[in-house]
Simulated scan of single mutants.
Amino acid sequence: MTSITLPERCDRAAAEALLPEMIAALGSGALEIDARGCRQIGQAMLQLLISARQTGDGAVIHPSDALREVASLTGLTDELFSGVLA
């Protein structure tokens, strides 16, 4: 399982920087995403995380409180965390 750690600020620039790493991880099993240090999450990162969950072998996201709150506010809790003990 490939592991990726997200930065504290997960804005569009962070999503663009992480995209190649996530694409490279395709085909090597489920992706493990450590988002416990995230304090600020933007729309682009939410889209990238949902894509990671739905692509290839999927992804397991370990969220911060901030990511849980944003997921709840945007109605994306199931898309990001369903079927996973997060």
Rank of each mutant, 00 (worst) to 15 (best):
R36A: 09
T5A: 15
A15S: 08
A25R: 01
L67Q: 04
I50H: 01
D57P: 05
M22P: 00
L18D: 03
A24E: 11
M22Y: 07
Q54P: 03
M1I: 10
R39N: 10
D57C: 14
A14D: 02
S51C: 13
R53S: 06
Q54H: 14
E8R: 12
P63K: 04
V70H: 04
E21L: 13
E79F: 10
D11R: 06
L73F: 03
V84K: 10
A44M: 03
D34P: 01
R68N: 14
Q54E: 15
C10W: 00
A59F: 03
R9C: 08
S64N: 06
L6V: 02
G27W: 04
G42T: 07
M45Y: 06
L73G: 07
L26H: 09
L67R: 02
A66M: 07
G27M: 04
S72E: 15
A17D: 09
Q47V: 01
H62E: 12
A66F: 02
P63S: 06
L46K: 05
Q54G: 08
M22S: 03
Q47C: 03
E16F: 04
P63T: 05
M1F: 06
L48G: 00
R39H: 11
G58A: 08
I50P: 00
G27P: 01
L85P: 12
S82Q: 11
C38V: 15
L67C: 05
T55R: 11
S72W: 05
D78S: 15
A86M: 15
A30R: 12
Q47T: 07
V84Y: 10
R12K: 14
M45W: 04
R12F: 08
V60D: 14
L73W: 00
A52L: 05
A44C: 03
R68I: 11
A14K: 05
A59Y: 02
R68S: 14
L26Q: 14
R9H: 11
S64M: 09
L85R: 15
L49D: 03
R68T: 13
R12P: 04
L19P: 01
L85T: 15
D78L: 11
T77N: 01
L67K: 01
R39A: 15
A86C: 13
F81L: 04
A30K: 12
I4Q: 03
L76E: 10
D11C: 02
I61F: 02
A15G: 03
A14H: 07
C38R: 01
V60T: 15
P7D: 10
L49P: 00
I33T: 04
R12E: 15
I61Y: 02
P63A: 07
Q43H: 07
E32I: 10
S72D: 14
T55K: 08
A13S: 12
L76M: 14
A86R: 14
